[in-house]
Design a binder for these strands. Structure first.
Length: 315
DNA sequence: AATTGCACCAACCGCTTCACA
DNA sequence: GTGTGAAGCGGTTGGTGCAAT
């Protein structure tokens, strides 16, 4: 016997939220705080699944969410974090506190993934197929094996750079560019009171839209035009975004430098904060095995020299 | 002007993890 | 240790708007 549904599917409303519903939810959360979502439909009269309420709050109404255009720096961070973490959107979102995991996921799926694919397809086109020997290939052609090896190297270098960043007794380029992860969906209740008081952005917009009697959610279009204005269309532009050298002269896919990141974007209040062992460390060290191996790896990583290949930190 | 195809993104679904009795 | 409900998470879907034909 399966788990009973979280709510009566015959009664709950589905589909886009109306401004009225948003206001009901916002006012409830302002009074009671987020959490206990099960009670929200009952207490607010909203004919919505508790899950839907939580999602609406987390992904849209929650204060502190920045919507609209992803900056170049944000895109760079997402790409690099995705390469490191995979599709762990909540983990990635923890490094971009103003963005929701859903937003990042959508942006990745609709923009960044396609750009990466184009980039790699472009390179694939220049790679002789494995069945046809590349004995006569020109100098800028590399074999499929070489290409795959370089990809592996990219990932390896990224891991090394990251590990170095996690070395606590050494200044870290990584730390300067990636702020400590922040809790995302699990809303930080210790700060919520003040945050509610200043939850001007989303709620003000919400009310503005409500006053105009215009749906606010549907495409806050000016917001969602994201890459139409800022997107990098050419693979050449995307190279610069990634720091890739498309000719694979060096494995720049591991470039963790975000030196062009503005102070605002790098969230200076977080820089230098001692990182607790996070999922990054766990992820790295999980692979290592026993404590001896871990300690050895940390020692090794401490001596990893970033200037082995200055290209890694080129803009 | 009508139709079609595509991009975008909010919201949903179902599985997993967490917390607690 | 086990069962149960709540919350978290990632993949997917469906509605909307816009551009191309």
């Amino acid at each position: 016997m399966g788990r009973p549904p979280c709510c009566d599917k015959m009664v709950v409303k589905k589909g886009p939220w109306t401004p009225e519903e948003d206001i009901m939810l916002v006012s409830y959360v302002q009074r009671h705080g987020p959490g206990n979502w099960r009670q929200v439909p009952t207490n607010t009269g909203l004919r919505r699944c508790s899950k839907s309420c939580r999602l609406r709050w987390t992904n849209y109404l929650r204060p502190g969410i920045r919507r609209g255009d992803f900056t170049h720096d944000e895109e760079t961070m997402i790409i690099q974090l995705q390469a490191l973490l995979g599709n762990k959107w909540s983990a990635i979102a923890s490094y971009l506190p103003e963005r929701t995991d859903n937003d990042i996921k959508n942006h990745w799926n609709t923009h960044l993934k396609n750009k990466l694919r184009k980039l790699y397809d472009h390179d694939h086109d220049r790679i002789p197929s494995s069945s046809t020997s590349s004995s006569s290939s020109s100098s800028h052609h590399i074999s499929r094996g070489q290409w795959e090896k370089r990809l592996q190297t990219d990932v390896h270098m990224a891991k090394q750079a990251l590990s170095d960043a996690l070395s606590l007794d050494k200044p870290s380029i990584f730390l300067d560019n990636f702020p400590a992860p922040q809790p995302t969906s699990s809303y930080n209740t210790s700060t919520q009171t003040t945050t509610y008081a200043s939850s001007t952005g989303n709620i003000a917009n919400l009310l503005k839209g409500f006053m105009k009697n215009a749906p606010i959610s549907s495409k806050s279009s000016s917001d969602s035009s994201t890459c139409k204005t800022t997107g990098i269309d050419s693979s050449e532009g995307f190279e610069s975004l990634l720091g890739f050298d498309q000719s694979f002269g060096s494995p720049n896919g591991s470039d963790l430098s975000l030196s062009n990141m503005s102070p605002k974007e790098s969230k200076p209040e977080l820089i230098g904060a001692q990182l607790p062992f996070t999922m990054f460390e766990n992820w790295l060290l999980d692979e290592a095995g026993g404590d001896d191996v871990i300690n050895q790896r940390k020692t090794d990583l401490t001596h990893f020299a970033f200037d082995q290949n200055p290209d890694h930190f080129r803009n």
